[in-house]
Amino acid sequence: MSVRALSVVPGKPETAQVGDHPDPPESDGSVLVDGLLIGICGTDVEILREGYGWAPPGEERLVIGHESLGRVAAAPPDSGFSPGDLVAGIVRRPDPVPCVPCSLGAWDFCRNGRYTERGIKERHGYAANQWRIEPEFAVRLDPTLGDLGVLLEPTSVVAKAWDQAEKVAARSPAPRHVALVTGAGPIGLLAALLGVQRAYQVHVFDQVTTGPKPDLVADLGATYHTGDIAGIGVQPDVVIECTGHGPLVFALTDVVATDGVICLTGISASKRQAAMRPDEVNKEMVLDNLALVGSVNASRAHYEAAAAALAAADRSWLARLITRRVPLERFDQALERQDGDVKVVLELAH
């Protein structure tokens, strides 16, 4: 028996292909899942086009896919799951030592770097028509979400970012009312959704002036901005930065309110160098009590918060985020950005 999966030899992007792989071993987990969809993001493009990623020890190929959605096919009675449950898989696994954060379930704060990640680092991912998972790393979704459940992993990223930003913001007694999200890709739009759910006055900054993004922001009740960040006209208490564009990150120190928090979620692949003004930025951050904090991945608590946020969201708005569906066998088409793309997903079922 075998499953159909999308895999690559890390370091050899020309080897990316859909092919037969052995059935997922029981060591992957006791819950058997029929794969439905995976979302494609920049990390997947890096793996498939640039050779990023690490295969499991002793293996040559890596099955990709970390933005998962599937339906339980079989599960032990004591697992907490039943056949038919809609689920997504958590990406990161704690290191084998483990370090203190990993031992406490906060593997997103792993200190020794020996964590593994499904579809990225030393563990096969979810881009297969069937996969297994440990019950403690599976997240049940509201069944009414249907295919929209594929948005869970990116939503978990911003659920953690908001959690971190608000924890840091709590150092000041000043109330927080205004939020700025930079970038209107899937992460940015989901960050805006969670900001609106938190009753912030949300502003979104992006360079795109046409396509679905401005309307998606407006339909949240948020405000869309383009042009020069310096002329945005608001002083946000909290910034969720989703572009990874270095010059923008430092420009934000001129925009954010006193005592403000800038939470970074994006990483840029650009190798361009830009002039910086480190002394001025340092002065601004000290005198204005600014906080700049990075946020990566997510713990189970953030996945559960993301599942609750999606369950509470307007389904028709979420559906507009998924702009293209591509059959697994034509995965190359999903890697080519098209006008109007927000989230592109691969269909795993035959």
Rank of each mutant, 00 (worst) to 15 (best):
R4H: 11
A88M: 13
A334R: 03
P247W: 15
K12T: 08
A312R: 09
A305S: 10
D279M: 12
S82L: 14
A74N: 13
A16N: 02
S316R: 14
K213Q: 12
G42S: 07
L194S: 02
V139E: 15
G340I: 12
C242K: 08
G125D: 08
P212W: 03
W107A: 14
H350D: 14
E60P: 00
A312D: 07
V326M: 03
I187T: 07
T43P: 06
V157R: 00
V217F: 05
P56I: 15
I187R: 04
L194Y: 01
I38H: 02
D288E: 09
L348W: 09
A222L: 15
I240S: 04
S7I: 08
F109I: 15
P94H: 13
E166R: 11
V256F: 00
T243A: 02
V157K: 01
V345L: 11
L62T: 05
S295K: 08
L86I: 14
G183P: 00
H225K: 02
L190A: 01
E329Q: 07
S68I: 11
D142P: 11
F81V: 11
R93C: 14
V3D: 01
P175G: 11
C102S: 10
A174K: 12
L141E: 15
L335E: 02
V256C: 00
A305Q: 10
R325E: 12
G149K: 07
H66G: 05
A16V: 06
G185D: 09
D237Y: 07
R49F: 00
V157D: 01
E117A: 04
A159W: 05
G221E: 13
T226P: 00
P143A: 12
G58P: 01
A308N: 08
